[in-house]
Amino acid sequence: MTAAVEFQNVSRHFGPVKAVDGVDLTIAEGSFFAMLGPSGSGKTTCLRLISGFEKPTGGQIRIFGEDVSNTPPHLRNVNTVFQDYALFPHLNVRDNVAYGLMVKGVGRSQRHAKAEEMLALVKLDGYGDRKPAQLSGGQRQRVALARALVNQPRVLLLDEPLGALDLKLREAMQDELKALQHKLGLTFVFVTHDQHEALSMADSLAVFNEGKIAQIGTPRDIYDRPATRFVADFVGSSNVLPPDLTRALGGPAQWASLRPEATRLAATGPVSGTVTALRYLGSGTRVVIRAGGTEIAALVPAGQPVPTEGATTAIAFDPQALHLMGAI
């Protein structure tokens, strides 16, 4: 199977700023791939390198095996759903969706029929005559999606597609996007800074940090076995243990991560500290203990005794849950 998108040592430097620096990446055809990272980490630049809005300053990009380093955006068979949707305000919804066909010279009736088909796909039948300004945020998002799909791209790029929606709508759209991807069998590449979104939607994801990929893997890989302290910090709610604490807990002198649900409270143990915060979550209570200079969170399941704030308690854990990782 050919890779949908392949990066070989790709860099994009803006003067002294290394927005993307020596990235190697393979996105499998038909996968739902997420690029996750804080702002400025290079994930959006990577997406723009795929769409062609940025040219790499080094390395090679292939789409379905073809080198696209010198191909302008309008000749690449990939389409983008923009963060601000970028709908054309002077065109109605139907013409927005049909735009990609219009510039290719498809006749009016044919492109309008196709546009209606796409609008039905995103459940916006009957909205063709409206102007974008007359739509809600979620509806605009669907129009943007329909518009990007009308050209039948081989790869669909989504730049923070759900960022502007409220929580409930966002969750509904997550499911819908996932279903749509299944139905169409396309490769979806989407950029997000929301780790929950990335973990819940993607088949695999890349975590970006300072222009480089910190880790690539399935959501489970990344959540359970973060490769570096940065990934653990950014992706999960895991406890990040400095080397001396890891050793005090019986491990080697290395950075390690420990998930709160694998952390328990005990009467005695090698490490103890003061309870500084309690948060009731319904399914349990999150207890934060300050031990040395580090805050460690533990999840106390419902029904078990919860200490009071200021109390002293020791920490225990399942040794298999302790995951060692790199320093950066």
Binding site: S51, F53, H74, T80, F82, A86, V103, K104, N151
Partner: peptide, 9 residues
């Protein structure tokens, strides 16, 4: 960019 992305010269 959207226009170029959709194939417009």
């Amino acid at each position: 960019e959207a226009s170029a992305d959709l194939g417009a010269t």
